[in-house]
Each structure stands twice: as structure tokens, then as C-alpha cells.
């Protein structure tokens, strides 16, 4: 009884009723989320213009919505930084705004703190490229700290190694000497080759029967790509085709046509293509994976942040947040 009496106080009823009403209001009429966008027509026109200047063509609808989504995200990150009052507590923003005020010649007789206050009143922090970059960067760092990138696992490395195996393959290597004939020596070439065959000449003796070749006569451990630089693609195609016909054949091959004439080849050695081994390229794969993981983590964090805002005037930019 005495307990109920103690509760029967008007001031207590007032407080309880107030709390209930407050909770009811919050549930029924929640605080509206901040709105970002839409971009003005002029700003969209600027985005289109930038693309046109960069590429010489109009953006497609899909590209344009992508640009708009990126711009909205930047605005959202800036807004978020302002909501968190990063601009009030960052020494870089502070110094930048003071410098701007001094540049605008508003500094006479005022302390730095006064200048900073005045810069905020003049909303200079909203109109400074470096301040905006700084604030966006701070938000991104905060997001990455909150949603850190996933470290690549051994399984990830194995998977990417497997998927890039062809790209990372070591090419075949050819070692040979050759007898060269210019384009005007095609008829002589056949009789020289016959002589080499009939007399079983070695390469040293045979080479003397050809013409000088500016790139030289001996080529060691050359990849097809390296050979193409010196002889042209036709030569490499002919050589590869010959080796495909007889992979183990060493000795005389040809004549092979090139951009410069014909080459009768004495193949000394051939090392077939081989797959790269993981230890050789692990570091390179790790760098690539870490980079992608960081980008992905940031994209996902930004996507999460979007739920705290009403994004108007553009499709949400959720590409690749998996």
C-alpha cells in the first residue's frame, strides 16, 4: 500500500507519460534521414561534358547513371564528414581555412581561432577542394577501420594462381644460328641449301654461304616475342609450326621467311613453355589481391553507409560489393 502511495505522485506520472510519448513518437514518426541529391541538371551536364572531353563521345545512359551514383556517393561522404564534425577537429582543415582567410586578406588583427570561426561562418569549408578531399579521405579511413578488408588466404592465392596460369606461363625459348638470304637471293638459296645438305656442312661453314644480317647470326634462348622483334611475325609462325610438327627435332630447319628475306636455321636447343611456379610469383599475386580486397571493402562500407541517407536522383552504386 505504501509502495503504491509512493508511486501515486503527479510528477512521476508526468515523467513516465513523457517517456512513453517520446518513444511512441520516435516509433511512429522517426527522425527523417538526411537527403543526398539529386544532382542539378547543370551538374549532370558537367559530368557529361567531362566524359565527352575525355573520350570524344557521349556517355551511354548506363555510364551516365554510374557517374551520377559516384558523385552522389562523394556528396554523401562529405555530408557524413560534416555530420561527424570532422571539419571542426582536423588540423589540416584548420590550417587550410586559415590560409584561405589570409589569402582573402581577412587576417588583419584577428587570431587564428577567430579566422577559423569566420571561415566556417562564411562556409569556406564547403567550397575548398583540399578540404573536401581531406574530409572524404577521413571518412573513407574511418569506414575501412570499421569494415577492414579481408586478408587474402592461401586458398585465395591458390585460386588466383590457377585462374591466371596461362597469363603467367613462361614462354618457350629457342637457341639457333642461321644462314641468311636477302629477298633478291631466293633462287640462289635453294642451291646453297642443297650444297649444305650434300656436303653435310656444319653451321660455321654453312653461314659463310649466306649474306650478312644486321641483327647477327646467333640467337640464344629467345622467346617467340623476342624473335618477332628481330625477324617479324611470319618468321615466328613458321618456326612455331615447324616445332609443332616435330617437337624434338634439333638441327636444320627451314628456310623460314622473315620481314627481311629467308633464314636457314640450325636449331641448337629448344626449351618448351612451362607453367610458372607459385613461389616465383606469390608476391605479385598478394599485391594484386590486397589491392582488390581494399577496394571491395570500401565499396561495401559505402554501400552500408547509404542506408543512413536518402539518396535521390540516381541508382545506387553497389557494383561489386560481394
Amino acid at each position: 500500500m505504501s509502495r503504491l502511495t509512493r508511486l501515486n505522485k503527479p510528477w512521476l506520472h508526468f515523467i513516465v507519460l513523457g517517456v512513453v510519448l517520446y518513444l511512441l513518437q520516435s516509433a511512429l514518426f522517426p527522425e527523417p534521414k538526411p537527403t543526398v541529391g539529386p544532382l542539378s541538371e547543370a551538374r549532370i551536364a558537367t559530368l557529361k561534358e567531362q566524359w565527352r572531353v575525355s573520350t570524344g563521345r557521349e556517355p551511354t545512359e548506363e555510364q551516365l547513371s554510374g557517374f551520377i551514383a559516384v558523385e552522389l556517393d562523394r556528396d554523401m561522404l562529405m555530408q557524413h564528414a560534416l555530420d561527424l564534425e570532422f571539419h571542426l577537429h582536423d588540423s589540416i582543415v584548420y590550417e587550410r581555412l586559415i590560409r584561405n582567410m589570409k589569402f582573402l586578406q581577412f587576417a588583419q588583427g584577428r587570431s587564428d581561432a577567430e579566422l577559423f570561426e569566420q571561415a566556417l561562418e562564411m562556409r569556406l569549408h564547403l567550397d575548398d577542394e583540399v578540404v573536401k578531399r581531406r574530409l572524404i579521405q577521413m571518412v573513407e579511413q574511418r569506414l575501412l577501420a570499421k569494415y577492414p578488408p579481408v586478408e587474402p588466404t592461401a586458398k585465395d592465392i591458390d585460386a588466383v594462381f590457377e585462374s591466371r596460369k596461362t597469363e603467367l606461363q613462361h614462354p618457350p625459348r629457342y637457341s639457333f644460328e642461321h644462314v641468311f638470304f636477302g629477298t633478291d637471293q631466293a633462287s640462289r638459296m635453294l642451291s646453297v641449301i642443297a650444297k649444305i645438305s650434300d656436303e653435310n656442312l656444319d653451321i660455321q661453314a654453312a653461314r659463310k654461304l649466306g649474306a650478312p644480317f644486321i641483327q647477327g647470326h646467333r640467337f640464344l634462348r629467345q622467346t617467340p616475342e623476342q624473335l618477332a622483334r628481330n625477324f617479324g611475325r611470319h618468321f615466328v609462325e613458321a618456326l612455331v609450326e615447324a616445332m609443332e610438327r616435330e617437337p624434338t627435332k634439333l638441327g636444320w630447319l627451314g628456310p623460314m621467311p622473315s620481314a627481311y628475306g629467308f633464314h636457314y636455321i640450325w636449331l641448337e636447343d629448344f626449351e618448351p613453355a612451362r607453367d610458372a611456379e607459385l613461389p616465383e610469383i606469390k608476391q605479385q599475386l598478394l599485391i594484386d589481391l590486397n589491392y582488390r580486397a581494399k577496394k571491395r571493402a570500401l565499396r561495401c562500407a559505402i554501400a552500408t553507409l547509404r542506408s543512413e541517407y536518402v539518396m535521390q536522383g540516381g541508382a545506387s552504386n553497389e557494383q561489386g560489393c560481394q
Partner: peptide, 20 residues
């Protein structure tokens, strides 16, 4: 340091605009 501040994040992806 104070010298560095104007250049912070200048080449971050969002700051790489190529317009005039």
C-alpha cells in the same frame, strides 16, 4: 607537418578529375 597539408590525398581516386 604543415608543409604537406595542401597535398593530402591529392591523387586519391576521387580527386583524379581530368576536366579543365
Amino acid at each position: 607537418n604543415a608543409f604537406s597539408e595542401p597535398y593530402h590525398g591529392l591523387n586519391a581516386p576521387e580527386n583524379m578529375g581530368a576536366s579543365s
